[in-house]
Structures are given as C-alpha cells and as structure tokens.
C-alpha cells in the first residue's frame, strides 16, 4: 500500500512511501505508524485517514493495494 502524509506528519515520515507490512485495517495502520515513529504518536491519534480520496473509519478493511492519505487536524483559514 502507498502512504501519503501531509503537513506536520512530513517531519516524522517521508511525504510518500510504500508499506509492505501486512496491515489489515486502518486501526492497524495507525498503530503501525505509531510504532515506526513514536514521536508521531500524539498527532497520529488525531489524524483522519482517506482511501482513494474518501474518508474511512478505523474499521476499514485494507487489501494492500490502496493509496492511503493520512490527514492531520486541519489548520486552514
């Protein structure tokens, strides 16, 4: 699966990267990213996730071929 991150998450991860690990749900992905980089734990808790540009819940099932966007809390305006 391909992971894309934005804003503050770019200080913890590459802007876009491929993830080969066996990850079944968005909840597992959140945990995986937290383990990879514990410094990002606090912001990851507040992130939304999108698959193919649509928001998904933590229960969303992943097949491994998705493009997943990790979206930190908004700060526009």
């Amino acid at each position: 699966m391909r992971i894309q991150v934005f804003a503050v998450l770019k200080t913890f991860f590459k802007k876009e990267f491929e993830l080969k690990a066996r990850i079944n749900t968005i909840a597992e992905l959140r945990t995986h990213l937290r383990v990879v980089n514990p410094d990002a734990a606090a912001v990851l808790e507040l992130c939304r996730f999108a698959v193919q540009d649509e928001f998904v819940t933590d229960q969303y099932i992943l097949t491994g071929n998705e493009h997943i966007v990790v979206i930190p809390p908004s700060s526009g305006g």
């Binding site: 934005f6 804003a7 930190p72 908004s74 700060s75 526009g76």
Partner: peptide
Amino acid sequence: IKHEVPIWKCEHFADGTKEWGGNC
C-alpha cells in the same frame, strides 16, 4: 472549512523558526 477541510498552515516566524500549527 477551518475545522474539516484538509488544508494546513505552517507559520514562519521572524526568528527563523517555523511551526505547523493552529490546528483544530
């Protein structure tokens, strides 16, 4: 827009530091 839409600001300060902030 401020709470929901995926837009982010990075503040660049006069002292040369920067910070992603002001988030929901």
